[in-house]
Amino acid sequence: MTIRVLLVDDQSLLRLGFRALLEQQPDLDVVGEAGNGAEAVTMTRALRPDVVLMDVRMPAMDGIEATRQIVAAGGDARILVLTTFDLDEYVFAALRAGASGFLLKDATPADLLAGIRVVASGDAAVAPAVTRRLIEAFAHHLPTSTGRSPVDERLDQLTERERQVLGELARGRTNAEIAARLFVSEATVKVHVGRILAKLELRDRVQVVVFAYENGLVDPEQGGQGGRHGG
């Protein structure tokens, strides 16, 4: 199946380079280019791409606000954010807005192509190890153990086992690591992850991490290395 990609970057030469790379791939089709976030929102609505390759810093509307609007519109497009700086504040804001992953602009062509395909498949293009670093780098942006917002009532739908899996996901652990810690099979973990996403109305594992921290299921001060489960 062909993956339809929209390129969003205010630098035309970068878009040209991305297009040249992607058009060499038989399963990728560049359906359009946008030079800013406002154009990205409009073109996503009109072209219905599977993946939007989104720059962050752009005129008129930045990639974070564009991501927020695209996700809020409820379409199927997945957002893969490109950034110059590893784990900067813009990356975290984009993930909270609904992006399914991020890559550095100096990523290898192989990493870029893999990221597009992973996001298109419904997974998050943020490796568990990177998720851990994300948690550690941005714990201070998240609610602390005091003054938390009210816990999302959707959590009441989760079973005790699903809450345990949710806590492990929030710490950036892989399915294999979760299976070993909970003494279940990886297949069972995958089933639990799918149910968690459905019940909490979340798009992918990155959104699970953000949700878990915002609802106090893991203590941000512990940076993903422990914490409490919600009761």
Rank of each mutant, 00 (worst) to 15 (best):
Thr2Ser: 15
Ile3Asn: 14
Val5Ile: 12
Leu6Trp: 07
Leu6Gln: 07
Leu6Cys: 08
Leu7Pro: 02
Asp10Tyr: 08
Ser12Ala: 11
Leu13Pro: 03
Leu14Ser: 08
Leu14Gly: 02
Leu16Asp: 13
Arg19Ser: 13
Leu21Pro: 07
Leu22Ser: 03
Gln25Phe: 01
Asp29Asn: 15
Val30Trp: 10
Ala34Met: 04
Gly35Leu: 04
Gly35Lys: 07
Asn36Ile: 01
Asn36His: 14
Ala38Ser: 08
Met43Trp: 07
Ala46Cys: 04
Arg48Trp: 02
Arg48Ser: 12
Asp50Cys: 14
Val52Arg: 07
Leu53Trp: 07
Pro59Phe: 09
Pro59Tyr: 03
Ala60Tyr: 05
Gly63Ile: 01
Ile64Val: 12
Ile64Met: 03
Ala66Pro: 01
Arg68Ile: 00
Gln69Pro: 01
Val71Ser: 09
Ala72Asp: 15
Ala73Lys: 03
Arg78Trp: 13
Leu80Gly: 08
Leu80Lys: 08
Leu82Trp: 04
Thr84Tyr: 08
Asp88Glu: 11
Phe92His: 05
Ala93Thr: 00
Ala94Gly: 06
Arg96Leu: 01
Ala97Trp: 00
Gly98Asn: 04
Ala99Thr: 01
Ala99Asp: 03
Phe102Met: 09
Leu112Met: 09
Ala114Glu: 11
Gly115Asp: 10
Ile116Leu: 15
Val118His: 08
Val119Cys: 15
Ser121His: 11
Asp123Lys: 11
Ala124Arg: 06
Val130Leu: 10
Arg133Cys: 04
Leu134Ser: 02
Ile135Arg: 12
Ala137Ser: 10
Ala137Asn: 09
Ala137Met: 11
Ala139Cys: 12
His140Lys: 14
His140Phe: 14
His140Ser: 15
His141Lys: 15
Thr146Pro: 00
Gly147Leu: 11
Arg148Phe: 04
Leu155Pro: 03
Glu160Ser: 15
Glu160Asn: 14
Glu162Pro: 12
Glu162Leu: 14
Leu166Met: 11
Gly167Cys: 14
Glu168Phe: 13
Ala170Ile: 01
Arg171Asn: 05
Arg171Pro: 03
Arg171Ala: 09
Thr174Ile: 08
Ala176Phe: 05
Ala176Glu: 09
Ala176Gln: 05
Phe183Met: 13
Thr188Asp: 05
Lys190Cys: 02
Val191Glu: 11
His192Glu: 14
His192Lys: 09
Val193Pro: 00
Ile196Ala: 07
Ile196His: 04
Ala198Met: 06
Leu200Arg: 01
Glu201Gly: 01
Leu202Gly: 04
Leu202Lys: 04
Arg205Phe: 02
Phe211Gln: 00
Tyr213Trp: 06
Asn215Arg: 04
Asn215Thr: 04
Gly216Met: 05
Leu217Phe: 11
Asp219Gly: 02
Pro220His: 12
Pro220Trp: 06
Gly226Pro: 13
Gly227Phe: 04
Gly230Thr: 06
